[in-house]
Design a protein around this nucleic acid. Structure first.
Lengths: 335, 335
DNA sequence: CTGAAAGCGCTTACAG
DNA sequence: CTGAAAGCGCTTACAG
């Protein structure tokens, strides 16, 4: 790769001025461009394998075709990556590129990550969180900022999963298949604190609304805010002891994993003796046997939507992304 | 945020020339800089909250303080993220920023991602793969390129996990605790193909070497190249049927998960009746009960090292990163 | 010890 | 329909 060709090189080769070259390459809809000249420019550009220097263009235009992505922790879930991929997909479609950085959730680190991106002249910024929480993001005026899977105290535009509908659908899916005796594991008042979650409340509400529509309630609910396998295990045991159920809704996949363990121990087969539905669609869900039917957190789509909003500019305050049902093998229809 | 202050603004405020300002801000070790002038410059810069425009600097210097990260698939494993985090950590330490992009593993897509980064004038590039494979990366001269968790046909510098040592240590860990009757699940000739893996061979070799050192061999080995829970499940059943073992080494955590299922079904308790050691340390490993003792694939460190090599320039052909033993609860010492 | 000037590679009024 | 010139914000020889 020899020295990179410059606009001037192209102009020289085409026998035209840099002005003209710039015009045709950027497809300025002018009276300009005789087809002949345009042809020559394109040929020269192709021959020299010309690629505009983004730094020069950035300097001149004050735009970088770059958007910054700041995440609270790229490390924690694999699904972080799905969000990044969504971002990347639309960035690529629109010929933008993404700069990434990690901040914790501490306000000062967020502010400094923001500053970094602004220094780098990002044309827009998306903050991504792994769990939908409320964070503190300074409002900055210059470029569009959108939060992906988060809400800010300052009311910045955000994209969030549609948890109400997901809750509704999860319950509805069971109801539709004839289940009436359903337990829920993972209720928690504490989780309603926006610092911990801004969506769980909607998830609960959706669940309750679906049951209410059928004129029923959960036959039993297990409290618990730490949604790990242990809760599912102990919770399911509690359910089995207290009452009879045909289905359990688990607060998330890890809890469902615990339910599987408890069911197996008790000799209950899934889905024949017990149906299980859950939320998140993490890694685990497809490793379990039978595979888990679960409502997916749409990281990829949240990434896509966030990027679209940033690029289009003027994003609405809140946009909800559907959580698709991943229909697998953990539910059976009651005859 | 008003208009961003420029070098000239600082100069004006300090009553000095832009030249001088640039000198002191970049700490040029010249005869220049009377402490007085330097002081005034710094004060002015601080007051205006001056931040150099990277586009301008990039244009001038031809350096962008940016490195490109191209991954085969950000999506697949959560560990992708650990590698990214490693990259980010050192980039931040050295005041660089990272641009990301995804390519598949098809040569043409790789080439075009590469081109994108080069267009953007990245100062260096790291390719990251999720599974250590061989890929086709065009050799490009201009900037340092290193492969993280991959090897290229073209012999580009790469960083890889030290699988030989990991294999050795995994077996040694069991041997040291008195185990002699050990089975292995997941042997496969097919996996020795570099297109599928460039490290599995070393993992096998390390395992074998450790046993050989103790003058023993595996009492049974189960073939299999698809390292999923099913293999572990069926493989463990095969082992239990054919012979007696005190420990099983699983080719990876998913296989180990299958071993757990089979053991539980047979009434064998881990680690009391059966010890299990494995590789990868994925998500799953800490969800199993007991938690799995496993050799970690050092995504984070591979990311760090790759970034360091790129930034330092002139990277060696191959650098090996240790795979730390994650000591958890799936092994017991034989009395 | 300090400053005036040129130039990195673009784009865009402005003239012709 | 086309071109000469200025300028985006820096840094670095070069002079003084």
């Amino acid at each position: 790769m020899a020295k990179r060709a410059t606009l001037t090189d192209v102009a020289r080769l085409a026998g035209l001025s840099p002005t003209t070259v710039s015009m045709v390459l950027n497809e300025r809809p002018n009276s300009r461009l005789s087809e002949d000249a345009a042809e020559r420019v394109r040929a020269a550009a192709a021959k020299l394998n010309y690629r505009p220097n983004p730094a020069a263009r950035g300097l001149r235009l004050g735009k970088t075709r770059t958007v910054g992505f700041i995440s609270d922790e790229v490390t924690i879930t694999r699904y972080a990556s799905a969000m990044i991929r969504g971002l990347l997909e639309v960035a690529e479609e629109r010929d933008h590129t993404v700069l990434i950085s990690e901040s914790g959730r501490r306000a000062d680190r967020i502010a400094s990550a923001l500053e970094l991106m602004l220094d780098r002249q990002a044309d827009g910024i998306v903050f991504g969180l792994m769990g939908a929480k409320q964070i503190d993001v300074p409002v900055i005026a210059d470029v569009p900022v959108v939060l992906s899977n988060a809400r800010s105290a300052s009311g910045l535009p955000c994209v969030l999963p549609d948890e109400f509908r997901a809750g509704f659908e999860a319950a509805h899916y069971l109801l539709e298949r004839g289940h009436r005796r359903i337990a829920f594991i993972g209720r928690s008042e504490a989780l309603l604190d926006p610092v911990l979650s801004v969506t769980i409340g909607a998830r609960y509400a959706g669940l309750d609304a679906a049951l209410a529509e059928s004129g029923i309630e959960f036959v039993h609910q297990v409290d618990g805010r730490f949604w790990e396998p242990d809760l599912g295990y102990a919770g399911a045991q509690e359910v089995f002891q207290r009452t009879e159920v045909t289905a359990i809704i688990a607060a998330n996949d890890r809890v469902a994993f615990g339910v599987y363990q408890a069911a197996q121990e008790r000799g209950l087969r899934i889905p024949d003796d017990l149906s299980v539905v859950s939320f998140d669609d993490e890694y685990l869900a497809s490793y379990l046997r039978p595979q888990l039917t679960t409502m997916q957190i749409p990281y990829l789509d949240m990434g896509r939507v966030a990027m679209e909003l940033v690029l289009d500019g003027d994003p609405p305050t809140e946009t909800l992304v559907p959580m698709p049902l991943q229909e697998r093998g953990s539910v059976r229809a009651l005859s």
